[in-house]
Amino acid sequence: MNLSVQIGRLVMQNPVTVASGTFGYGVEYAQLLDLNQLGAVTVKGIRLNPVRGNPTPRTAEVTSGMLNAIGLQGPGVDGFIQKYWPFLKSLPVPTIINIWGTTVEEYAEVARRFHALGGVGALELNVSCPNIKEGGAQFGTDCKLLAQVVSACRKATTLPIITKLSPNVVSIAPYAKAAEDAGSDALAVTNSYPAMAIDIETRRPKLANVSGGLTGPCIKPIAIKLVWEAFKAVKIPIIGMGGIQTAADAIEFLMAGATAVAVGTANFYEPQTALQVIAGLREFMQRKGLNEVREITGSFQPGK
């Protein structure tokens, strides 16, 4: 049985990674699970300089999901390389580094820095964070800017580039196409949905940032549809994510057109989720007599 998949030049031993921002820098979970079982480790978003992040409260539980407005707190490129890279580099599984910036030049500079570092599995361009004033979603909701970011990074590195799209658009197809045309090797679909919640006792927002991003099982059906629409629009592989808790959820993403999947919010309450998904996927393939996990991608049959 072959579970391996390819995202550009990046080979993953199985199609399951973790979603940026829900798995720290890998090392935090090393005591609880065997990271080497994963298809890849995807780290929290990094920009050039350190970022302090938003005031608290930064997350709130909502029905079947959660809101977050972390504000992309992080150590910056140098801090990451010093503090976290030695560990990640030592792992046999590849690392996908999620990057962002407030200008096109900054994205390209960060891409250049990680290219120069050597040993990075792929870069994931976060053009879809709803929780910061500059950068993030502004690039992901304007096709022209999106193309500029992707092509600037394309010029800066030969590493596989995964463009992480925003769900907050009328139709995802032109964005998917724009990223593909600008040289992206793959897409990640989807980031969190802009959302908010109010504490009715105090009339205050549940997040200090007032609004944040909705994630978890409650967004899965919306994310499935976005993956399907992106799949119809492009030829490059898609990493599907949004509310995956079980192998069945992951298989749904694969059938809708994803080549790989990422487990996000579920890590917070069940750190074993990604490993359970891999085991369940194997079982499904056995039961269906499938030899290649690739056969599942896009196998959904919308007609009659």
Binding site: G21, G24, E28, Y29, G53, P57, R58, M66, N267
Partner: peptide, 13 residues
């Protein structure tokens, strides 16, 4: 308030 409890999510700062 916490979310992951193990240092990955940056909720509890």
């Amino acid at each position: 308030h916490m979310c992951c409890g193990v240092g990955v999510c940056l909720t509890c700062v």
